[in-house]
Computed example of a mutant assay.
Amino acid sequence: MSTNASGGGDLDSAVTITQAAAEEALSLMEGEGMDVDIGGLRLFVQQGGCAGLSYGMRFDTEPEEDDRVTQQHGLRVFVDPASMNYIGGSTLDYESGLQAAGFTVENPNVEAECGCGESFRT
Rank of each mutant, 00 (worst) to 15 (best):
M29D: 05
E23F: 00
E118M: 06
D12Y: 00
S27M: 07
G8T: 11
F103P: 09
D35F: 02
C116G: 11
L28I: 09
L26N: 02
G39W: 02
E62Y: 02
Q47W: 00
D93A: 12
D67K: 01
A20M: 01
D67S: 05
V36L: 02
E30K: 15
S54Q: 14
G31R: 03
E24K: 15
M57E: 07
I17F: 02
P63L: 07
E65Y: 07
N107S: 06
R121T: 13
E32K: 12
T18D: 03
S13D: 12
Y55T: 11
V15K: 04
P63G: 10
D12Q: 10
A22T: 09
R68V: 15
E24V: 11
S90D: 08
A14D: 07
M84S: 09
L43T: 09
T61E: 05
A22L: 06
E113A: 13
P108E: 04
R121N: 13
T70Q: 03
T16E: 06
C50K: 12
G102I: 10
Y86E: 14
A22G: 09
L26H: 03
D93S: 13
E62K: 01
S27I: 00
S96W: 07
T18F: 02
S2H: 04
V45K: 00
T61R: 03
C50R: 11
R58M: 10
G49S: 04
D80S: 03
E23N: 14
C50L: 14
T91N: 08
F44C: 07
V45D: 04
R121A: 14
Q46H: 01
F120I: 08
R58Y: 03
E111S: 15
